[in-house]
Design a protein around this nucleic acid. Structure first.
Lengths: 219, 219, 219, 219
DNA sequence: CATGAATGAGATTTCATTCAT
DNA sequence: AATGAATGAAATCTCATTCAT
């Protein structure tokens, strides 16, 4: 039986339509921004009637949230993978970077949606409340990853800062290697930049937690 | 006599109104995004009539461009300052970071406007053509700063990438130190991260120096 | 054998569905008005699919007309009953009031549909053409009842006015006795009000009996 | 100086436009019902642009509420007038009828809006919450009028019932005299109907308040 | 210069109706 | 006969822009 075999045909068709709307809108949101994309553009690109949009999403924001949820899902998958392999806080941060990197290469549009289209906040400032749910989900994934190596709970604000730093750093890093192949020398430099970022992040997380450092490093 | 003393009273008042509009809009653009800010919100916040807006700016985009120009002006001032003091490519990149950092602390809203509100692009993707003029101006400032220490012209694309990397890196870095005071250890880590970024950037700029010069015209 | 026993099972089920749709819509029409009730609300309340609606009624108006026809049917039953017992014009008008009253107590929602939800007009104004058929049916019932005691035909307009007056009067009267039990004194007062209304109505119907007959055709 | 002389010309013009919208919509609401009237029909009839509507009213409901408020204002004026002249509960109820009657003849469309277009509820049922404010205002006017002659406060529900009864009764009464001139006999009948209604209403209000009757009648 | 009422193009949203299953 | 996904016409609503004062 097919993947959706247990669902009625109508339901299956509805899911397809929903998927088409999501794909069309993701592309458009990246191209022109969420606010500059008219719902009619989305339905035209998805080749469905305008009214069909509203059978699947209450409004544009709900669609954007659904996209963000999908994207966070994919990103968290990568983070979970990394989680399994690491044995120290440094490795955990390193794992987060790698997870973001993989996510970027597998779902570049989703990456851009989250980190460049104001779905996720950067630097401090207000948290866009509309996308709060997926964003909190994402922060929770990061918290889980790093807290395994820190004796006490990390303040939510600190997690948020780490997330912003990772986003900025990864975005910046990609600028150096956008076409994939960099010279060997740059590659080496990037590695050391990488290591430096990891060290800084770890220090930031452990700040004011001397004893923890001892416990973990001596492990 | 005051700076505007030589202008008629009417002109002086007009400049004040223009300034009020710029201040009001900058705050709103940061709060809710450019697209989500209605012109009437701006004029209300600036406490002027709606029609007055159009005496000063042809439309919202022109206002945003004016804000971007102001911001770039401030940022370039800091870059020029840094320029005077540096003696090597590493120092030049270091100077750029410092310049961005100073700019961020002096004009945080302008920083956010340029680097978080999609006035300037991040990662590759489309260059927002609407804000091309101030953006090119900014890239030119960066180019001047780094080219003094590189024998041959650097490809425009490479400059753009450097700019994006700096923006991402600085944004990320600020996440670690948003409330200003960080523990000494983190501070040290950040310095080494700093140095690593500088080294990577320099290597990136010098990468394949020789052969590249030949096909320089490609953007 | 049940009432529908001679019909096939499918037909019986169809009748049931039709009935469910009518019940659901009557309740909703009273709650929120005909125009404010979406067909989907009706089908949801009746717990049938949206498409099913169109198997039973061509559109919302047809459904409303069907409801109005049912209601008029019930009201006319009561009017016929009253008809049998009365021996004078006064008694006929009295019978009409009683018939409306019984109808109100037996089918309050149907009463409200006809007299409060603009299915039947009140005061003069336009006759809602959409519900013309059941309305004319109702007027005809009233005409039959009163004409038995008036030598010549009563002008249609006068019948319509009488109908409106009865509707208003009965609506008003119910306000005094909505919870059923009123004090004895009020009860007495209501009876005299009742009698006064009957007398007025009779006078109205007989007014200018003679000359009117001449220009009877005018509506 | 003209009536609006103290207002700016712009404000004066705005008030005119608002008035035009109200007049156009009142006519249309009576002709076809609130729900069946499109905003564009209103603006066309008022001969203003579609967007102009929204400068004056947030939506159709707000406009309808404004109309209801105006109407209640006019009706309350008449009620206040009647208030001054009456000396007993019977006269107070009589005054209310007269006030409604005058209101009907001066502002027939406003009367119909309130009492026939479901702006005010008739018979019990739900009170349409959207028009709550003007409706409560109206009830308050009625309460004031009758409470002057009743020692103790009258229950709000009883006031509401009285209001409904008056509305129904007056609506019904008008059916008999819509073209103004009725035969002398009918006129006499109507007067006695009138008196009967007044007596019933008074009894209803005083129900269970024996001592008050004594006090007032002995006055 | 400053104003804010008016405007209408275009966006969002609703919902009666169709139709393939 | 029953279903509900899809549809698009028509409604509501927003807002950048104009213009008379």
């Amino acid at each position: 039986m097919a993947e959706n075999g247990s669902l009625g045909r109508a339901t299956r068709r509805a899911l397809q339509t929903r998927q088409r709307l999501k794909e069309a809108s993701l592309a458009l949101f990246i191209e022109s921004g969420i606010e500059n994309t008219a719902i009619e553009e989305i339905t035209e690109r998805a080749d469905v009637g305008k009214g069909t949009f509203y059978r699947h999403f209450t409004n544009k924001e709900a669609l954007a949230t659904a996209l963000a949820e999908d994207a966070v899902g994919h990103l968290l998958e990568r983070i979970s993978e990394a989680e399994r392999e690491c044995r120290s806080l440094d490795e955990a941060v390193e794992g987060l970077i790698r997870a973001h990197s993989k996510f970027f290469h597998e779902h570049p549009n989703e990456f851009l949606l989250l980190f460049q289209r104001r779905v996720f906040p950067q630097v401090q400032q207000d948290t866009p409340q509309e996308f709060e749910a997926p964003y909190l989900n994402y922060l929770e994934g990061i918290r889980r990853e790093v807290e395994r190596f820190i004796a006490r709970p990390v303040a939510p604000l600190r997690i948020r800062r780490l997330a912003c730093a990772i986003a900025g750093f990864v975005s910046g890093l990609f600028s150096f290697a956008v076409d994939g192949i960099a010279a060997e020398e740059t590659e080496k430099s990037r590695e050391s930049l990488h290591r430096a970022f990891v060290a800084t992040s770890s220090a930031f997380l452990l700040e004011g937690e001397i004893e923890e450092i001892l416990n973990l490093n001596g492990d």
